[in-house]
Design a protein around this nucleic acid. Structure first.
Lengths: 120, 120
DNA sequence: CGGCATCCGGCCTGATACTG
DNA sequence: CAGTATCAGGCCGGATGCCG
């Protein structure tokens, strides 16, 4: 990793890429299948707006994390998929998820503990 | 905010915690030593403002990632350190950093390649 | 030394309407 | 189907000044 005087550990580039309210879930969904169409993604992530989905997909494509394949036909068809490079992020997502799940159950435990104290 | 019927990976809780322009670096710095004082952190992260440092530290403390130890004395002294729990994040930071470094060197390679093509 | 309060600008996000 | 365009709001981050 970067030395101290270089101040910023390389984490930022990753965080910048993974950050965004929906990017982790987009990547997660893409990691589940070979390729996903635009509206399918929208269906898989109901709360996302088209604008956010589009812009995030664009960013991810720019960073060469995902691949965008356009079929010149009517009706239009666009498929998104993780690039070989993008698959390198999956383990990080997993780590994030594992930690997050762990964290959530920890929170629940603390909550239960509180309840127990109150009820007991 | 998490699960849309279990579809959302727990990544969010982690991202929420680690996200913030400076949090990764704060955690990184704290991971380097047993404990760090407020102004020391500010010195280690020159570009951060006091406000951001304070608020981020508060959030991290709230999430039980870091410990805040106040010495009732003059001049005041406050030390921050990773909690045992917080140390669980370090591997994630490392993964982030590794991927980030990889990514950066990849970018450099692409840049060099472009230059070569232009110059050649 | 280690904060907090206030104000402010910009980016991120979102709702809605339109296009090829 | 897969976007683009426009407008609006809210939160994040930054600068400055005050306090124990």
């Amino acid at each position: 990793m970067d030395d101290n005087k270089g101040k910023c550990p390389g984490a930022y580039s990753t965080i910048e890429i993974v950050t965004g309210k929906w990017k982790p879930m987009i990547l997660y969904q893409l990691a589940q299948s070979e390729s996903v169409r635009f509206n399918e993604l929208k269906r898989l992530i109901p709360d996302i707006t088209q604008k956010m989905l589009t812009s995030h997909l664009k960013e991810l494509e720019f960073h060469d994390i995902i691949d965008r394949k356009v079929y010149a036909q009517v009706p239009p068809k666009v498929e998104y998929s993780l690039t070989e490079y993008g698959r390198g992020i999956v383990p990080i997502l997993s780590a994030l998820q594992n930690w997050g799940k762990n964290h959530l159950s920890r929170l629940e435990q603390m909550y239960d503990h509180e309840k127990t104290e109150i009820n007991g």
